[in-house]
Design a binder for these strands. Structure first.
Lengths: 335, 335
DNA sequence: TTGAAAGCGATACCAA
DNA sequence: TTGGTATCGCTTTCAA
């Protein structure tokens, strides 16, 4: 609770020197610095972030905007971001959109613009032109993780080619009756992600000369329960069934696997399933998937922002994060 | 980017009035308030949090300390906290311990003490006496979610009775050969949680006159992979096998279910499994479990802190959150 | 109801 | 290497 003045008094130097000493700035004698440090420790002094933020213009905090915090991908990115921020002694302000459209405006209007942060990292969001303009006038370094955004650099995988590879894996096993469990257009989220994955699917099918059945392209909302229900409805339908499913995310793939079980179908004998992510549970489900590394993506994005805050040249180009096919036991040739 | 002075100038009133008008304080004429609001909107003025924090002593931010962000329980609590904070226009500063002991000190020393927050909410943490003292001198309202902490009020379930009920469910089905998959003493985390659950297990067994086999009480680290491995090791051992498992969390229960599959055992015919949580995936796994509501717990805790920040009397007692047995298909009488 | 002015607690420039 | 001091942008008495 001690202020800088008390430390100055205890040390017999000015507050200016205390400030310099504690922040590790040059031009402070070792002796003085040591004395100041000792006094600060004893008095339990820590600079008030409001005061130093006001005086210096830097908050030493990074804003992170997430659509929600309870999806595997987001949690992994958050851990990656956090790891970098810790190293730089930056704090993280978490802006959770929580699904509501109205709150999104609140975040932009009240919180982000309050200059509580020095930089902004957004997850899987799309921005309206107005929002992008606000960000621009703020003058903060900004970056997006997960999904390309027009006018902003981003860190993420190549959605289309990843989906292409996943679909091709099924095709190369001999499947032609392939369904796609995709993401819906969740409001405010980055629609480029599900769209890119759908494109990759369509491209792979077309290149293999396979016709896509529209009724086999169904929305799974990026969630297990929704996907399970959607897949169950598909399997309920009379007529031919798909022999394989390309799910746009592992969580949706889990839903497909469970739906197969609901219908007494075995995976992979009766139904092959492939996903995207390499979720923590993917190995448990024996899921074949396109592995990506969201932790690394978050860390990379945070590092880019921190570097720029440190004076580095802004990098304009986006970063493409690697993916790899991990074959497990959920895919096999059709019987 | 406009400052309060510009709004004042544009409106023809003083900065004091602008401040009052924008914050909804009384004693401002409707006409003036409207004019100020309009000018602020047009100029895109939003008060700087550093400046108002410095002047008022309130940051309008709540600190939330989490052991990690990638565990189901934590994400749910976070969503609950966030929902309340949004309603109160509070921002969330997320302090992620990320498992490292050293960073924990950093959080306490540098971040929390920097007065960046008005209150502190901690998840499943235990505090050292020194840490508790620091918190006390800070003078912030503080609360814990998930696990009782000596000297601090908390919001959470009754660990012991919950575990007791879960174990009793297995016993009532006729099981006597029951294993317990528990949490390990993760460093810095609240050890009262796994300990309470173990106690409940032991009590239920004792009350039923069943002797607990120490070699059937194994650690699962609150994670699926660890639990799967631990359970596999248990099942690998020669001699009798348990007919049921009480897992201290759903994620550990999932691990047990997968391990059963690894050994060709059917659930529930060969092995009954019960967990605690009602994880999003519990229904998918058909898991019988003790359901709790972490979202609600987080919201409740946040509300308590917000109320106190708003001037309410501090509540000293802890809040016990309800649980309920949800029977699905993972438990049945032994064969 | 409104305004004037004194802080809030640091930082950063300019001198010494 | 150090100190003095203006300054950051807002809030909050105290008067008017």
């Amino acid at each position: 609770m001690a202020g800088i003045e008390e430390v100055a008094r205890a040390t017999g130097v000015s507050t200016a020197t205390v400030s310099r000493a504690l922040r590790g700035l040059p031009n402070v004698s070792d002796k003085t610095r040591a004395a100041v440090r000792r006094a600060a420790d004893e008095l339990g002094y820590v600079a008030s972030s409001s005061a130093s933020g006001l005086a210096s213009g830097r908050t030493l905090a990074m804003g992170v905007v997430v659509p929600s915090v309870s999806r595997w991908f987001y949690t992994q990115v958050l851990e990656g971001v956090d790891a970098e921020l810790r190293g730089a002694s930056y704090d993280m302000i978490l802006f959770n959109l929580g699904g509501h459209r109205g709150d999104r405006e609140r975040v932009f209007h009240r919180s982000i613009l309050r200059k509580r942060t020095d930089a902004l990292l957004a997850l899987c969001l799309d921005f309206t032109p107005a929002e992008r303009e606000q960000l621009a006038t703020l003058g903060h370094p900004t970056i997006v993780v997960g999904g390309p955004v027009k006018g902003l650099r981003s860190v993420g995988i190549d959605e289309t080619s990843t989906a292409y590879t996943a679909t091709s894996h099924l095709i190369s096993l001999g499947h032609t009756d392939i369904a796609h469990l995709g993401g819906e257009d969740e409001e405010g989220l980055n629609s480029q992600v599900p769209i890119g994955r759908l494109h990759g699917f369509n491209d792979a099918m077309r290149d293999a000369g396979i016709v896509v059945r529209p009724e086999w392209v169904i929305p799974g909302g990026f969630s297990l329960p929704e996907s399970r229900a959607a897949m169950n409805r598909l399997l309920d339908r009379p007529g031919p069934r798909p022999t394989a499913v390309f799910a746009g995310s592992d969580e949706m793939a889990f839903g497909a696997i469970l739906a197969a079980g609901d219908h007494g179908l075995r995976v992979p004998e009766d139904l092959s399933v492939i996903g995207i992510d390499d979720h923590d549970y993917a190995a448990g489900f024996g899921l074949t998937t396109m592995a990506q590394d969201p932790f690394e993506q978050g860390a990379t994005a945070a590092r880019i922002l921190l570097d720029e805050l440190g004076g580095a040249e802004p990098r304009v180009s986006s970063v493409s994060s690697p993916v790899s096919l991990v074959v497990r036991s959920s895919t096999a040739p059709p019987r």
